[in-house]
Amino acid sequence: MAEILSQEEIDALLSTIGKEEESSQELPETLIEEKISIYDFKRPDKVSKEQIRALRNLHDKFARNFSSKLSGFLRTIIEIDVASVDQMTYGEFVLSLSQSVSFNVISLHPLEGSGIIAVEPDIGFVLIDRLLGGFGATFQNIRPFTDIEQSILLDIVNLMLGDLKNIWTPIAEIRFEVIAQETSPNVVQIVAPSEVVVLIVFEVKMGDYKGIINFCLPVITLEPILTKIGTHDMLSISRKEHTNRVVDILQILDNVLIRLETYLGEFKIDIESFLNLKPNDIYILQKSTNEPAEVYCNGVKKFEAKLGKIKTKKAIKITKLIG
């Protein structure tokens, strides 16, 4: 005969079953949340995170070089930093720009396609004012750039393209050239709005003013060289470039002229005798000919030497390197 459970035992069993159901319902939810990763099929990531990192490192170097060149060009201190490197659709890039931007379409020969350098007006007018001899100020009411102002900004864009060509040379020999200038981003469409582009955003600071210069490259244009863009490849290229640069610098230094001066000694003279100095006057130096003479290289003491002569010419013989 089956054992009859008491009411207390029945209640204990029911409470245990309720707890097991709660734990079994909570566990799958936790596991599902951990496995979920968001993916937007409208915006597939065509450029890997490693390639994005490599592009950032590449343009960080460009920003340092170009800030120095632009500072010398404008004769004032310019700071340029890479604000971000992202991939997005071309339509989103155009929507992110202001309506009064300096929109420069650039060719990327031998790659098929074009890129964009967009100078925002908040920094564009500051650069124009500086180029025209001002202190570098902007207008309170931003307006579209005139054709003359676009031509003035073209000098800075071309300067920027020269440095970009040097930075990209280890990856590919790209000839950057401005082929069109517009004041509205809606006038020119280099790729379809749904195409993915890489956007490098530079923040430019000059005095109290700062603004943005955008550098946009369509991924479809970069595809032939995309495999060459990677952190490991960039590191090996950087080491090779550094070695080549050292060799180039040493070759240039071989032909540099420097001034060598030998300090023979000194003597004291009063003002009256100094004023009465005349040719063939002889004064004795407070230094023996056996003591080493100090040799200066461009004003810096570098050697010790012995005094002497070769045939009819005075000479020194280097005996010791200092420092």
Rank of each mutant, 00 (worst) to 15 (best):
M1T: 10
M1F: 08
E9T: 08
L13M: 05
L13Y: 04
E21R: 15
L27Y: 05
E29I: 03
L31D: 10
L31R: 14
I32M: 04
S37E: 12
F41V: 08
F41E: 00
F41P: 01
R43W: 06
P44I: 09
S48G: 13
S48R: 14
K49H: 10
K49T: 07
L55G: 12
N57W: 06
N57K: 14
K61W: 11
N65K: 14
N65H: 15
K69R: 13
R75Y: 10
R75M: 15
I77K: 04
I78P: 05
Q87W: 00
M88Y: 09
V94N: 01
V94M: 10
S96H: 07
Q99A: 14
Q99K: 13
F103I: 03
N104V: 10
I106H: 04
S107L: 10
S107D: 03
S107C: 07
L108F: 09
P110Q: 11
P110H: 14
I117T: 03
I117S: 04
D122W: 11
G124Y: 01
V126P: 00
L127M: 11
D129G: 11
L132G: 05
G134V: 01
F135C: 11
A137T: 10
T138W: 06
T138P: 00
Q140I: 07
Q140V: 07
R143E: 00
P144A: 04
I148P: 10
I152Y: 03
L154F: 03
I156Q: 02
V157G: 01
N158Y: 13
L159V: 07
G162R: 06
G162I: 12
D163I: 14
A172N: 09
E177K: 10
I179S: 07
V187N: 10
V196S: 07
V197F: 05
V198F: 09
I200T: 13
D208P: 09
D208M: 15
G211E: 00
I212E: 00
I212S: 01
I213A: 02
F215S: 05
P218S: 01
V219Y: 02
I220N: 09
T221A: 08
L222Y: 03
L222K: 04
P224N: 12
T227F: 00
T227V: 12
T227Y: 00
K228R: 15
K228I: 09
I229R: 04
H232S: 14
D233N: 15
M234S: 13
M234P: 09
L235N: 11
I237Y: 13
H242V: 06
H242Q: 13
T243P: 05
V247Y: 01
L250K: 04
Q251F: 05
Q251W: 02
G265F: 02
G265Q: 02
F267N: 10
I271W: 15
S273Y: 15
P279S: 11
N280D: 15
Y283T: 04
I284V: 12
L285E: 09
L285Q: 08
P292L: 01
P292C: 06
E294P: 03
V295K: 00
Y296G: 01
C297Y: 01
N298V: 08
K301C: 06
K302Y: 00
F303V: 07
E304W: 00
A305T: 03
A305D: 09
L307K: 06
T312D: 12
K313W: 06
K314N: 15
K320L: 03
K320M: 05
I322N: 14
